[in-house]
Design a protein around this nucleic acid. Structure first.
Lengths: 340, 340
DNA sequence: TTAAAACCCGAAAACGTTTACGTAATTAAA
DNA sequence: TTTAATTACGTAAACGTTTTCGGGTTTTAA
């Protein structure tokens, strides 16, 4: 009964043609104010909502965007999605979510399945296990696409990133100012510009202070959390770093666990700093000094850029948008200004 | 070019009718194996994917489900979504996400916008600020719907919950066994069965141990996080509880902050226990004893139930599915067995 | 007064599928 | 051998919109 209220039904009850009703609903200039209000009031009365499938088919627009991310159960991404949702709602758009689990195959599978008109555009933060530039160079020609955080460079598309280089430089400098010289680097996102840039900031900060890079102090991320803990433990035992720079959130907890295992005191024996959006960073034991990316704002900006494309605005705009991360000094680096 | 490959195109190139191609793609028994393979190979070669809008319109099925939750940036819900996504992917379904921000109006707005055939079914965890039974009693007749965690009772629909009563009883008993008698209760989800049941478990555990309820020790959740901190501080100053039972994750951090502000030692001065899916609970200062719900599994189960309905299976099955939460004893309650 | 413009609405095609129905050719049953 | 059943494919309608085109009526300008 209620599911059967469509344009035809409205047209019959109002003694109008289907075309007129459709135009009235879409606020066309061809329709008089009088009939518009007649149509609108009946539509509201019968609780009419247009059939999306029919509308999509004819107009080739879906009012839907897709978000493709590695993992939703991650503070950064869930906050970003929150921002995206906020903007999407303002535009009356629906949001589809896809998790790649850091696998480029499923990433491409999902993306390809969206090219047949299921969505009007895509927001993506690419997976870390490979860098497939060719694929994305073709893709951005086929569908409106915006990258955020984990981007592909030198493509004709909007890219929302943070000041990874500068903030990593600053964070490293902060450790140096705290008296550290043997700063271990926990390396994540190696294949992506974000990871490379963070490392560059670290390296350049060391160089700027006359500290030479020690390759032995660089540890690479393993998907198995336990492996990371033992790797960090081994690193401590073999090379005794006096600080840890964790370039991804996933390394922070393992670093703490390793210290716990070795009974190392933070920040006395070792200082720790990590990229992180964990809301509980300030309550860790000790509280964790973090580089925190504006995840929510990144989502907002990314969505705004996509709607710029979808509404044909901002054609000539700069496609590289860089937001500022913030270094929040806490107990784990020992020289914070004042505990809250 | 590549976007223009549709059934008509396939039919032309193969000298077949549109109907035959469609049936071949859907593996109909009416089509010979020979032509099926001809169609399939060309389809793959041209990278054909059916237009979802056209398919939806004609067949009245979208391979899409919706998830309606209060807030995605919450460990419980993001883990649940991860589980839902997992199952949806197995069935080749797409997942739409909607955040209500605990507002029943937007919740109904979203839900209503899905009744016109945009999705085949809905998974929902209802918002906490109201209990609108009438609305959902009508709704479950209109569209396949599964509730998870925050459910409406006595409705003809699948409901996935946890053993809130029993685990709250056990947790309260744990505090009592640690010597606490003045156990404050931080009350959340008051209008929902989940919140009520948790409170009942707390109350009955007190009664079972001959401890009378003190209304002054019951604090109600406020949306403003700062308010909660000051409320807890006030509670401490006026009634000196020796333990805190936080019935929702959102109360845990404020409780810690209040203790910090009053320089109360956890667990010596006060013991704390909280419902929580925070992955960092074990690293808080001190580590937090939690009641942890199997969020991922809840998502899995909820999605499975929805697909039971969508595939017309499990008609007579029990619609109340209860999963077990787990009480993880840590430092904040002082009598944990053995630190990890 | 007349032509042009503006206004308002309807007929019908189109979007790309799915599916009920029809039919010819082949096979099985009588 | 005749008839019924089965197999394999095609025709055409339908799903509910949007949109092009056209026409009739009223208003404005000359």
């Amino acid at each position: 009964m209620s599911g059967e209220v469509n344009i035809k039904r409205l047209a019959q009850e109002l003694n109008l043609s289907i075309a007129t009703v459709s135009k009235a609903l879409n606020d066309s200039y061809e329709i008089s104010l009088k009939t518009k209000t007649r149509v609108l009031t009946l539509a509201k009365e019968l609780n009419y909502t247009p059939n999306p499938a029919a509308s999509n088919l004819r107009s080739n627009k879906t009012k839907t965007i897709a978000v493709i991310i590695p993992n939703i159960a991650n503070n950064f991404f869930s906050l970003a999605i929150k921002g995206i949702e906020e903007i999407a709602r303002q535009y009356g758009y629906h949001v589809l979510i896809y998790q790649t689990h850091e696998d480029i195959e499923t990433e491409m599978l999902f993306t390809n399945s969206l090219l047949n008109g299921r969505v009007d555009g895509i927001l993506t933060s690419v997976s870390s296990n490979e860098y497939n530039n060719d694929y994305y160079r073709d893709l951005v020609k086929k569908i409106p696409l915006v990258f955020f955080d984990r981007v592909y460079e030198s493509l004709d598309a909007f890219k929302i990133t943070t000041d990874d280089y500068q903030i990593s430089f600053n964070a490293t400098e902060h450790l140096i100012e705290c008296g550290c010289t043997q700063i271990a680097y926990l390396y994540g996102l190696e294949k992506l510009p974000a990871g490379r840039t963070r490392f560059a900031g670290y390296k350049d900060a060391l160089a700027a202070h006359g500290i030479s890079i020690d390759e032995n102090l660089i540890l690479h991320y393993q998907p198995e959390e336990n492996e990371n803990v033992t790797n960090i433990v081994n690193l401590f035992q073999s090379h005794k770093p006096d600080a840890i720079f964790s370039s991804i959130e996933e390394f922070a907890i393992p670093a703490y666990l390793a210290c716990k295992e070795l009974k190392l005191q933070i920040p006395d024996d070792v200082k720790i700093i990590s990229f992180s959006n964990l809301s509980s960073a300030k309550l860790l034991n000790p509280s964790l000094t973090t580089i925190t990316q504006p995840a929510f704002e990144i989502g907002i900006e990314a969505a705004k850029c996509l709607f710029k494309i979808l509404t044909k605005r901002g054609i000539g705009d700069d496609q590289n948008i860089v937001l500022k991360s913030v270094l929040i000094k806490r107990e784990s680096t020992g020289c914070w200004e004042k505990p809250a």
